[in-house]
Nucleic acid binder design. Structure first.
Lengths: 210, 210
DNA sequence: CCGAAGTCAAGCATCGGTGTACGACTTCTA
DNA sequence: TAGAAGTCGTACACCGATGCTTGACTTCGG
């Protein structure tokens, strides 16, 4: 039987990691991938989608899904982890040196696109998973952004009269706001990235903050 | 039997309105009030609180609650409507003339406090009520804020290179972000209003926006 | 090509929440 | 103070979702 351990256990050693997903049949891996890919879509259509619904969306039997993920929570967890891993793969390539403002913008654009895709999963995860777990998965992305903001503050490019945590929160929320405005039809998708950047730029710039 | 019509129907005439809640016994009204007051608390503790749980929180039997609100949705609706009415009573008194920037700040502070209290109800409502209904209840508050932002743009105080809808969305989301940061313990409650105002001030100010 | 791995339909026990019905009881109000 | 109005425990039907089991089937891989 397939097992969907994903990134669950307290796995420390990298070489052993593949012992989990490795020796399973090709079609099993394919199905697992199909499920992982279909879950965000299903949740975007209906945040309360049932396991049966998600399986259907993936073109897979419900029992097959349960074969890969013992419980609904595990499915959500694995899906979020997977999505975040993919995101990480993209974001890790963004160059962060040079002007913090520029780097920030370079980071926002892809982040925004990724977020729009993952958002639904994130929302569901927020009410079904433990906050600690979610934070843990965000670790890398968050650290990168925080580091950039801190450097920006040190170099006097970003305002330093507000805590970094707040800047971080505003960044996240602004992207979320944009996603919402887009789905609500009040904002053009292709214009969203620009709007976000423009907004944050003037909100974060180190200017005449008494 | 009590009936919890609240602000449901298409009630047009004001004088007739009281025909609903008026001729009911004093303790019935009291209970209704208790429920309406307890619901936000219950939902803040647990967004998925059951009707039974809410009744318990209100110190009232489940059946009593059902006597006032035929269905869970009706309860949420009435609660939100009530909370929003109270909010409206406060916000309507805020003077909006004079400098838009000043007026904006004067509006943010109380809005923020109210939002923090209502937030939980709002979140639940967003996933159980029709969006149209929620918008309808927000009408007045939203119109007031929008009017102010528009005036600010006309008078050159607020930037005009971004749509008012977006400014509005950012305002809401920033307050929400603050609420979240406060409950997460990353932001001091007493400092929140200032942080919000400072953030929005520089984000919205009409400056050197090429 | 055979055996193991995986799929998946159907069916079922379970759980928790909603909404209803009844009826005895308490508390207002006139 | 009588009777109407309202409370509220108990009990129940219902619903949808989860997670498990079985067993026949298909597909892969050596």
């Amino acid at each position: 039987m397939p097992n969907g351990k994903g990134a669950a256990g307290a796995g420390e050693q990298k070489p052993v990691r593949r012992g989990k997903t490795a020796n399973q049949r090709a079609d099993a891996q394919r199905n697992r991938a199909k499920i992982l890919a279909a879950t965000p879509d299903a949740l975007r259509k209906d945040p309360d989608a049932s396991v049966a619904g998600i399986a259907a969306e993936a073109g897979v039997g419900r029992m097959t899904l349960y074969g890969h993920f013992k419980t609904r929570a595990e499915l959500i967890d694995a899906t979020l982890a997977d999505s975040l891993e993919r995101a990480e793969a993209v974001l890790a390539d963004v160059p962060l040196d040079g002007d913090p403002g520029q780097a920030f913008e370079a980071l926002i654009a892809p982040s925004w696109m990724l977020l729009e895709h993952i958002r639904a999963v994130l929302v569901v995860a927020q009410r079904e998973l433990q906050p600690a777990r979610i934070r843990e998965m965000h670790e890398k992305a968050e650290a990168r952004m925080r580091g950039l903001l801190e450097r920006g503050q040190r170099e006097g490019v970003f305002r330093a009269d507000l805590p970094v945590d707040w800047l971080l929160a505003v960044t996240h929320l602004t992207m979320n706001a944009a996603a919402e405005e887009v789905t609500a039809g009040r904002l053009d998708r292709d214009d969203a990235a620009r709007v976000i950047v423009v907004t944050l730029h003037s909100a974060f710039a180190a200017n005449d903050h008494n």
